[in-house]
Design a protein around this nucleic acid. Sequence first.
DNA 1: CACGATTGAGTTGTGCACAATTCAATGGGG
DNA 2: CCCCATTGAATTGTGCACAACTCAATCGTG
Lengths: 167, 167
Amino acid sequence: MTAPPSPLPDAPLPDDAELLRLDHQICFSLHAAARAFGGVYRDALKDLGLTYPQYLAMLVLWEEPDPQPVKAIGERLRLDSGTLSPLLKRLEAAGLVVRERSAEDERSVVVRVTDAGEELRERALPVPRRIVAASGLSLQDAFTLRGLLERLTENLDASQAGQAGER
Amino acid sequence: MTAPPSPLPDAPLPDDAELLRLDHQICFSLHAAARAFGGVYRDALKDLGLTYPQYLAMLVLWEEPDPQPVKAIGERLRLDSGTLSPLLKRLEAAGLVVRERSAEDERSVVVRVTDAGEELRERALPVPRRIVAASGLSLQDAFTLRGLLERLTENLDASQAGQAGER
DNA sequence: CACGATTGAGTTGTGCACAATTCAATGGGG
DNA sequence: CCCCATTGAATTGTGCACAACTCAATCGTG
């Protein structure tokens, strides 16, 4: 909401080149950090036979005892069916989940974790510890980072929404 | 929505479950932020006919007047030839760059920006401004974020390197 | 000089992300 | 009640990311 447009007309305005440079470095850093995270998760999850996005999907499913509709998983992970459908099919092929049409609404497909999927959960428990250790951030920094990232995402999403449909 | 687990200031003890939750939210946030960034760039770059990674590659090429070897671009972006080769081929097909074998080292391929590529640079100038605006972060926050991300990436990379080859 | 190791691009195969489309099930308004 | 807009999944097509591999050019050492 608070968008400081230009409080100081002749402020120590970082000139264009400076702004652009900073921007580039942030998108670079974010890109690099996301991929570095992916690499560490790749190593940590190799033994479990999961990819990072598959792991995220399993986390969502493990969170609740009841089967969850594909729609709900997509909203949680901010992914659409084009990404989730094949991913869930691979999880089903691995025997970790089953997908079945909902009885109440035949359009909906609910995903249930199998016994094998629950067993995998046990083996996945030590994973986050490894990641936290690898990140090397203090709790304080982690909180700061998470807060900034969430604010950033919120802003970016709002900006994009305003850009597209709009009313 | 997401109900913060324990807002009690009295029991901030980060037991395992707490740590794991935090970790998950950070990887979630990072993932989400990276994709939100991608979405905003997608909009901003649509008119230029560039994808976000293609834009990053062009930024590297625009930075220096001389043609740059594929190797150097890959080191700058932390991408390997498996990703860069097809990407650069698409940029070449779009007429923005040309790739030619280096005279000194026949193994190396250098990438040169064409006149059309230089013209595109002019049209790309306003893009970063839009991104900075969309991010809605103050300069202060942007610096903090960049610092945390770089430290995070460094730690993750180091951890992964120690994990893998190592003798 | 010769030969084996290394280097730099490229190719292949798998999986993620997203736009656009398809299709059946559902639900609301005339 | 019927038609039609909406919804939820899935499919198709493009592009990125990475591992594993191929192949030619280069380098180093005997």
